[in-house]
Design a binder for these strands. Structure first.
Length: 194
DNA sequence: CCCCAGATTGTCT
DNA sequence: GACAATCTGGGGA
């Protein structure tokens, strides 16, 4: 088993954390069973002056966790679908990293049940899909991913060097849509399509 | 209390 | 590639 990434890992610039989380393992523990996916695609939502970020309108009940310390989950739902971020930086610096796609590693059978499909490439290749596969709902908002006892943790994995990172425009937003803040592992087939 | 926009997905053309 | 499905939080009246 890999070591859990420490708090300090997240207390850095949002873009640095977004790139750094590529190749790391997202672990969801359900009844002692581990569902594991390697993070292959992320997007950065900046702490300030980012009109596409949920923090742009200021602190609200929904986005409050973004204004807290780094290393906690931020789960929200829209269009009857859930999305999960991991909060970066520190108190009152509300940057976050949207987890857009995973490569399934462990617990694939259960992910298939949750997604009602046996197509491995269609299990976790999108922010809403991976939340369904890992049973992530908004009760899991604000979970500490640096605590081994949590139901969601992030474990150390591969270091993806700059040359293997594909940088592109963020997906599915209407504001600040041209900023190059989407990061993925070049050539990985589990990266979301659109 | 009502209205609306939104970090999506699956399906149909 | 277009579009509907249909939920939640925020903001204004």
């Amino acid at each position: 088993m890999n070591s859990v990434l420490p708090r300090e890992y997240y207390q850095r610039d949002t873009v640095i954390v977004s790139k750094g989380l590529l190749g790391k393992f997202l672990v969801r523990v359900i009844d002692g069973k581990r569902l594991v996916g390697k993070i292959v695609e992320t997007e950065a939502y900046l702490p300030f002056d980012d009109p596409a970020a949920h923090n742009y309108i200021g602190k609200t009940t929904r986005n409050a966790v973004q204004f807290g310390e780094g290393g906690f989950t931020y789960v929200h739902s829209m269009h009857q679908v859930h999305c999960m971020d991991i909060v970066a930086e520190t108190v009152d610096v509300p940057g976050s990293v949207l987890i857009r796609a995973l490569e399934p590693i462990e617990g694939i059978e259960l992910m298939m049940e949750n997604r009602h499909t046996k197509n491995v490439q269609n299990l976790t290749n999108g922010p809403g899909k991976l939340c369904q596969a890992l049973q992530i709902t908004r009760e899991l908002n604000g979970v500490d991913v640096t605590d081994e006892e949590s139901m969601i943790i992030v474990e150390d994995g591969e270091l993806i060097v700059e040359g293997r990172i594909l940088t592109s425009k963020r997906v599915g937003i209407s504001k600040a849509k041209d900023l190059p803040l989407r990061f993925s592992i070049k050539g990985n087939v589990f990266v979301s399509k659109s």
